[in-house]
Design a protein around this nucleic acid. Sequence first.
DNA 1: CAGGTCATGTAATAAGTTACATGATTAA
DNA 2: TTAATCATGTAACTTATTACATGACCTG
Lengths: 178, 178
Amino acid sequence: MSLPHVLLGLLAEPASGYDLKQEFGQSIRYFWSAELSQIYPALAKLERDGLLESSREPSPKGPSRKVYRRTAEGQKALKEWLLRGPVCRTERLDYLAQMFFLETIPPARRRKFIEDLRDDFQERLHALEAVEQYWSESDPRYPDRLPDHEKYRQMTLKLGLKRYAATVEWCEECLERM
Amino acid sequence: MSLPHVLLGLLAEPASGYDLKQEFGQSIRYFWSAELSQIYPALAKLERDGLLESSREPSPKGPSRKVYRRTAEGQKALKEWLLRGPVCRTERLDYLAQMFFLETIPPARRRKFIEDLRDDFQERLHALEAVEQYWSESDPRYPDRLPDHEKYRQMTLKLGLKRYAATVEWCEECLERM
DNA sequence: CAGGTCATGTAATAAGTTACATGATTAA
DNA sequence: TTAATCATGTAACTTATTACATGACCTG
């Protein structure tokens, strides 16, 4: 039940469903994603429940936009989610399940599997490194003098960097041990 | 579409739905889980599709068991899944989404949030460390002389250890920086 | 005989993906 | 005029969770 909360979180600034989908494409995508076909109904329900309100606004390019704003109720719901403490659901990592049964395929293909996995995480790592570099170059307050709302985003980024680096390292170790 | 493949993987040895559920409770749970209400229909479908076959067997304790075996077709399907290469879907990490919006709650509660997160991962780390210790004590081949099918499980375990350790470390760093 | 574990399932609901439908505006 | 982007949505399907239903066998 977290997508509604993620949307509430992102709606610190008014935005349309379409805008929100773009935001998922940026930093968010490393820990969450959603299709427009899931976002639109979710926003509609949040509005019905009084956590959001919306207004139609003409768009400079394209059809008119439905811009959502968080209500006081919405802000409260977001807070409650955070105050309930960390939500840790069981992760479903298909590639780890595959790793678990990797002996099923011939040795050469096993090696290739792990190389592919390494390349994938290497790429993600580079992407996050680029984010960090751009951020640190464009804001002299990076990383320790950032305002609160950016500080926690920076920390989130840091965990991504750590985990992806650890994963790439692990792939290399596996390859050496084969 | 991975649960069926996980079941195929686990069914290297014949087992009932109930047995398989137990296995999820062990090592598997760090990267996959499923309820019995999902497992039973999944097994039934795999049988209809000819990837598994079953037989009723009396149980020493309790009602009769339905024991599934992998067919040649099933083995093939498992191989194909692995040969298609690593499946990396977008992860949905609720607690990272929460971290991203953590400025929403008061500073003392932010700290508590991160402490709780650290405790959670610390616990998982301890659990995996216990698994490793037991394994290394009970099998002198651990870790480099293990037979193939255990070697990849050991590597899977290693990634878990690495990631959980990195996460605990990261929590500590966050707390220091607050 | 009560409570726990063994054992198999169905039903209802929630969450997420893929495909489809529609139409405006802009740039090549 | 054709393709791309902007913009909002519905429908069908798949996947996962929670709740319910049933009953055997074992232990205290």
